[in-house]
Amino acid sequence: MGAVSGLLLILITIFIPPLGVYMVAGCGADFWINVCLTILGYFPGHIHAFYVEYVYYERKEAAREGRFVAQRAPGVYSDRVQSGGHGYGTIVQPNAA
């Protein structure tokens, strides 16, 4: 993701934290947790949203560099965020020819 898209995501998250989480994690547990936190208080929603986005981009950078992060980030329930938007891949089975 380019610098402009990252900046746009940050601006969206500043004004509407659940929308920023939705753009990174989709409509799952992280999104609904953020909606509840934003309803309870605007500041807790921001903390959670920026944490989810930080984990996403940190894992995305690690995957780009070829590093595998074995531990799950605490408080993040989306597999998409945990893997940085990349799946862990599959093992290609050798041909039995």
Rank of each mutant, 00 (worst) to 15 (best):
N34G: 01
M23T: 05
A49S: 11
N95F: 05
E58M: 14
R59E: 04
P44E: 10
E61R: 15
A49G: 13
F31D: 07
M23I: 06
G66T: 11
Q71V: 03
L19W: 08
A70F: 15
A63D: 08
I47R: 04
G6Y: 15
G45F: 02
Y77R: 06
G84M: 06
L9E: 01
H86I: 08
A49M: 11
T90C: 12
G20P: 09
F43Y: 03
R67E: 05
N95S: 09
F68C: 12
T13M: 00
F15W: 01
I10N: 08
A97F: 01
F43I: 07
P94D: 03
D30H: 06
A49W: 09
M1W: 08
S83Q: 14
R64I: 04
D79C: 00
L7N: 14
Y88A: 05
S83K: 15
G84V: 08
Q82H: 05
R67A: 00
P44W: 00
F50S: 01
F68P: 05
N34K: 04
I33Q: 13
K60C: 04
K60W: 04
V81H: 13
Q82Y: 03
I47S: 03
G84T: 06
C36G: 14
Y56I: 07
P94I: 01
P44T: 05
Y22G: 14
C27N: 11
G45Y: 02
L7I: 12
G84E: 09
D30W: 03
R59P: 08
E65H: 10
R64P: 05
P94M: 00
